[in-house]
Every structure is written in C-alpha cells, then in structure tokens.
C-alpha cells in the first residue's frame, strides 16, 4: 500500500495495428520517419539524409540500372495512439464493491500508463446520457491522471436510469487510433452494447466487466426478500426458495453468456474483475496471459 502511494501502478500495452501519424510515439507506425522498422529505399535527392545512406544498396542499384544514384534507407516512424476511458457512471455502478472510488483508481491507472507511454488519454463518462462533467478530450498533460480520477470521484449520481449514454459516448471517440477501455458492470440490454460496439469497431476495445457480488444481485437465499432496482428503483419482492434461486442463477448466467457471445461477435476480449484492477492484471491482459 505504501509503495502504491509512492509510485503509481502502471501497465504496458501494445496497439495491435500500425498507426499512422506525424507525431512520434511508441507504437508501430505507418508514416515514414525516424524509427526502427525498415520501409524501403529512397533517392538521396528526394530525402537528403546522408546519415541513412546505404552504399551497398546504392551500388547494387546503380549496377543494375546503369544510373548514378545514391539510395538512403527509409524507416517507419513509431506513433502515439489515444487511450479512451469510457466510464459507466450509472446508478448500478455505485453499489458496494463496484463504486466510483474503484472506477477512479482504474482511470488514474489507465491515464498514468497512457501519458507515461507518450499516448494521449481521453475520458468519456456516461449514464443514461453523456456525462459532461466527466469528460476529457484526449490530452497528454502530465497532471491529467489525478484530475481525471478526481473528476470521477466527485461525479454526482446519475440523473436517470439506464445506460443509453453508451452510444453517445462511443460517438465521442473520434481519434484515429485508440484503445477504448469500456468500464461497466454490463448489467444492461445487450442491444445497446451491440450498437456501441459496432460504433467502436474501428478501435481496439477492452471491456472491463465489473462483476458484482452475488449478494448485490440477490440479497437472500431463503425467505421474504424485498428488493429495489439500483437503476430504476423498481421494487420487487420474492419469497426466496431453492427453485427461485435456481431460476435466478439461470437468468444471470444466460445474460453473461449472451454478453460473452456479444463480445465474441465483435472480436473483443473482455477482462472480468470484481473490483480492484491492477497494472499487472492489465499487462497480463495485453500479453494475452489471463
């Protein structure tokens, strides 16, 4: 804990595609410039950089063509991407083990790692609509991790029930290359998620599925149980007994199976967590090790 205070936890990640951009970064890029991956030869006349002169290639070329040219090596430049954090701030995200504090920690972790890597970090909070108070355009400012975390910590409760803001938030992600962290408990209609994932299909999406404790899904195994929905406040009461518990478990399993199927459809690998997300977990995720 004391170590955490001293040094912010972080994770490393790779963007799987080649990035096009003029700015230098760490991810494999498509634009030519200073870099380490070879991208062919060019005439010294066109790219007058004598440091990159390749005499062997020049002689071979001259002998073949009979001309008298000098070739220079060209490289692909490494480029930055943007990490977007799409944070679900709906009411169901503030129950016991899944709460804004945890969300803020994760945001800080992602922002810190992104900016430390030279990438940009953007934040889009949503509930039933877009949360304008929890919103950051992509930035590289060093102070941003703390600010973003505080923004989430200080975010008020959702005005109305639902997660429809997910689609609006997806529209906000306009970067050319981005890894989108979609943090939610995904206790919502799969349709909405489906639409959002279609919208985000250009990007690498990392859904972080925050799993609630069973107690928060169903507070009792037996007897009279009165419940109220965290989102809508809708009241339900049940006489709990083994058969009902079985049905409930079945419904829940079905939902999460559908959720997994939906992710599978969109070629997205979810990260399941029950609260604390550590840098190590995310590193393992990006290494494909979990």
């Amino acid at each position: 804990m004391s170590e955490n205070k001293k040094r912010q936890d972080e994770f490393s990640y790779r963007y799987p595609h080649k990035v096009y951009g003029s700015l230098p970064g760490v991810h494999h890029g498509k634009s030519l410039g200073t870099g380490d991956s070879f991208a062919g030869f060019s005439d010294l006349f066109d790219y007058p950089d004598p440091r990159r002169l390749d005499l062997r290639a020049s002689i071979r070329s001259n002998m073949a063509t009979g001309r008298d040219n000098y070739l220079v090596k060209r490289f692909q430049q490494r480029s930055p991407i943007t990490l977007w954090m799409m944070a679900d701030l709906s009411r169901s995200m503030s129950i016991s083990n899944v709460n804004h504090e945890q969300l803020a920690k994760l945001t800080q972790l992602v922002a810190h790692s992104a900016i430390g890597f030279g990438d940009r970090f953007g934040l889009a909070g949503f509930d039933s609509g877009l949360r304008h108070d929890v919103h950051l355009m992509p930035t590289r400012q060093r102070s941003m991790p703390m600010l973003a975390a505080d923004m989430i910590r200080e975010a008020g409760p959702a005005n109305s029930a639902g997660i429809d803001g997910l689609i609006h938030a997806a529209h906000m992600v306009t970067s050319r290359h981005a890894i989108v962290f979609l943090v939610s408990d995904f206790c919502c209609d799969i349709d909405v998620l489906d639409k959002a994932l279609i919208q985000l299909s250009r990007y690498t999406v990392v859904p972080v599925v925050w799993q609630h404790d069973d107690v928060n899904h169903l507070p009792s195994y037996a007897g009279w149980t009165e419940m109220c929905d965290s989102e809508t406040g809708q009241r339900r009461s049940l006489w709990m007994r083994p058969s009902i518990k079985k049905r409930w478990q079945q419904t829940m399993d079905e939902h999460f199976d559908q959720l997994k199927a939906c992710f599978m459809r969109h070629r997205v690998r979810p990260l399941f967590t029950d609260g604390d997300v550590t840098g190590e977990q995310l590193t393992n995720y990006f290494l494909g090790r979990n």
């Binding site: 149980t225 989102e231 049940l238």
Partner: peptide, 26 residues
C-alpha cells in the same frame, strides 16, 4: 418497506406469482 435491499438489476429476478400471494398473505 424497511427491508429494501438495493440490487443491481431487477431483470435477473425471476417473476413468481406465488411470491405475490405469499407477500399478500404476510
């Protein structure tokens, strides 16, 4: 409704007519 527990999503909660009867009885 003193025993209200906040649950994540009421869609998971099964619909059970017997519970309504029992609730009414209580």
């Amino acid at each position: 409704r003193t025993q209200d527990k906040t649950i994540v999503w009421s869609k998971f909660v099964p619909v059970d007519p017997l519970s309504n009867i029992i609730g009414f009885a209580f």
